[in-house]
Design a protein around this nucleic acid. Structure first.
Lengths: 327, 327
DNA sequence: CTGAAAGCGCTTACAG
DNA sequence: CTGAAAGCGCTTACAG
């Protein structure tokens, strides 16, 4: 590997000058500049990022911690984050924690030791809050709150509004017997959405019928069976996310129900999958691209000493497709 | 941030000793060891990985370059890679190139400048082969060949066998009029699979009916329409991957076909999605977990001077589900 | 405009 | 067993 010294020697200047040419960090005599440029292309010199990082105390790496890939919401978010990071000259390190607090803590520690410029946290384990607080690098939490002062920002969708939107839509589609599948109530996002649902029930004089469900395909299957047992007259289901909606859809079909004729279903997130499957899934859209980009921008702002909005709340919208129908 | 010097001072030893205690790289007097350990926990010292990397010329980072996330094959592979990397003390940097050679080249260069320990390449652009050859770090190519000497290994499924398996299955399911959707023939994997299909046609005295299609949902829609135009009597479709199969399924359903009664469909890959959708997709399984783990192991073997198998070929298997049926 | 020097925070021969 | 020294490959005050 050729180093900056080799280039300097070849160009007949000092390493400092080579550095200045590469980084445009000071004026350099035109002719020396040429010699340096030539020497660089002759040797194929690539500056060592690690050495630069050591000095700069920034590795231009953004760490992302996501629970899993079963839910495409996280992979889509990661995609957006990578794209935005790359465009700004950063790279993304991705960790799937499988919701294991130990792995999350370990990853946070490692990111901090690597001089990462920040962490985007998409998991929801409270056990790791201590690690988050004193990891020493900026953190952006997606869809959850952390009680820490310092460089911690939040990116979240308007879940309360989402809960209302979903409930109102099914009511307007003529559903008489709606069941809500809420996410785990230990998550603030799930609580907010549940409130939206309940308030809408009140507003329209509907009974609250709710079952709690983790955000997983398997749990979705179980909950779907339970819905059919407990609410055999169900004609509308609000699902806690698109994956669970697909899961519920599958169970209902196996029981012979037609969707949306017999039972209408609405999801949450609007992952790409929602419009790939047949029938296409009606859902509440979270603006994933905007949210991901904002998360990256927060990190970079912290890293570069800019101003950062601590709370970033994004609007949700109803995406009407084929699993609901105006009757 | 506290450094190794601070710890050394507090413990009354030299930085060398602290280093040796942390890394277990030499015997240290029991009592001094205790003092160091105490000093570390007192100060909350976390060694700086960047400094270590600079010396070691290894950042314990494995770079992954994937084209996109539309095809879950790549995200599932990335998940496996991250898991295996983490288990071995490495981290994963992930780049989505969107198939842009420029971004791929840039990422390779950057990974090399970061002293990454290796690159797992899941893209298929030949334009970048020069970059691959002289990036200076080990590369593992998934499902493609690169003509380079040095530390380049290959991980691939047995596509020829896969092509045969798929064709034979549809024939055995009683399809009389099979259409094959091949992947782009510029990819060796797609060519191998096509050969398997053609050889099976010969063996059973079937006509070769093939359309080429890129691995994308949108292209799948177009090809499906074309199949219906050109082969209206089609009763079996071999798809170049699961995503395209889902896409084809959608088009056929919109045209009123029942699956599998009217037309049978078989995919390729066996991504998780294949068994989540309704009906569940019959497909040819690639052993994604094994392939991803092997890719990581190759990189680590190169990095640690172990022996590496250059060509790693994995068996495929038929996964029979609901989109095909024995008639 | 430019070079020598010091330093980023570690690790490892080297000598004792 | 252990410390002082040198070095990993850059960058940036500093002095000229």
């Amino acid at each position: 590997m050729t180093s900056i010294r080799d280039v300097a020697k070849l160009a007949g200047v000092s390493p400092s000058t080579v550095s200045r040419v590469m980084n445009g960090t000071a004026k350099v005599d035109e002719e020396k500049m040429q010699r340096v440029l030539n020497a660089i292309s002759e040797t194929g010199f690539k500056p060592n990022e690690v050495a630069r990082s050591l000095f700069k105390k920034s590795s231009r790496i953004i760490g992302v911690i996501a629970p899993d890939i079963e839910n495409p919401f996280f992979t889509e978010m990661a995609k957006v984050i990578e794209g935005e990071a790359y465009a700004r000259g950063y790279r993304m390190t991705l960790c799937y924690s499988e919701n294991k607090p130990e792995k999350e803590k370990e990853s946070i520690r490692m990111l901090s030791r690597m001089n990462a410029d920040g962490i985007i946290l998409m998991t929801n384990n409270e056990e790791i809050d201590a690690e988050v607080k004193d990891c020493g690098i900026p953190v952006v939490a997606v869809d959850r709150r952390i009680h820490a002062d310092g460089e911690v920002a939040f990116v979240e969708a308007d879940h309360y509004e989402g809960g209302k939107l979903a409930a109102r839509h099914l009511i307007q589609c003529g559903c008489r017997n709606i069941v809500n599948i809420s996410g785990p109530q230990k998550y603030s996002s799930a609580r907010d959405r549940y409130r939206g649902y309940v308030d809408t029930c009140k507003q329209y004089g509907r009974e609250v019928q709710n079952l709690e469900c983790e955000y997983s395909f398997d749990q979705g299957q179980l909950v779907a069976e339970e819905i059919l047992n407990r609410y055999p007259a169900v004609d509308g289901i609000i699902s806690c996310n698109d994956m669970v909606a697909i899961s519920v859809f599958k169970v209902l079909r196996h029981h012979g129900y037609q969707i949306p004729e017999d039972v209408q279903i609405i999801g949450f997130d609007n992952v790409a999958l929602a419009h790939l499957i047949t029938p296409e899934l009606t859902t509440i859209r979270q603006p994933i691209a905007d949210m991901g980009k904002t998360a990256v921008q927060c990190i970079i702002s912290y890293a570069t000493g800019g101003r950062v909005m601590r709370v970033n709340k994004f609007p949700v919208t109803l995406i009407k497709r084929e699993t609901t129908i105006m009757k």
